[in-house]
Simulated scan of single mutants.
Amino acid sequence: MELTRYINTKIKLSAEERSVIDAAFKREFYSKGTILAEPSNRSQKVHFIEKGMIRTFYNKDGKDITHFFFDENAFTMSLESNYFNKTDPYGREVLEDTTLRTIHFKEFNDLFNNIDVFKGFFFMVSIETLKRFSDKLFSLQFQTAEQRYKSMTDNYSNILLRVPLGHIASYLGITQQTLSVIRAQK
Rank of each mutant, 00 (worst) to 15 (best):
T98K: 00
G33K: 01
Y149Q: 05
M53P: 00
T98M: 02
S180Y: 07
I35Y: 03
D64I: 11
R42N: 13
K45I: 07
T9D: 12
E16V: 09
K131S: 15
N82A: 11
I11G: 02
Y156G: 00
Q177D: 09
E50G: 01
L140Q: 06
M124Q: 09
K26E: 06
Y149L: 12
G166P: 01
K63F: 15
F68V: 03
K119I: 12
Y171T: 06
F122R: 05
K186Q: 13
Y149A: 04
G166I: 15
T178Q: 13
S40A: 15
F112W: 14
L130S: 10
K186Y: 15
G52K: 01
F123G: 09
E107C: 02
T66S: 12
Y149M: 07
L165T: 12
K106E: 15
F84Y: 14
S31I: 01
Q177G: 08
H104P: 02
F84E: 10
K86T: 11
L111F: 12
K136C: 03
I35N: 02
S126N: 14
G33A: 06
K136H: 11
S40R: 13
T102P: 01
S40M: 11
R101T: 00
R148G: 05
A169R: 03
G52W: 00
I115S: 06
N109Q: 14
L160M: 14
T98V: 05
H167D: 12
I174G: 01
L111T: 04
S126I: 11
T66W: 15
I103T: 01
T87M: 08
L3C: 03
N113Q: 11
E80T: 10
Q141P: 07
I54A: 04
L172N: 04
F29E: 00
S134C: 12
G52H: 02
F121M: 07
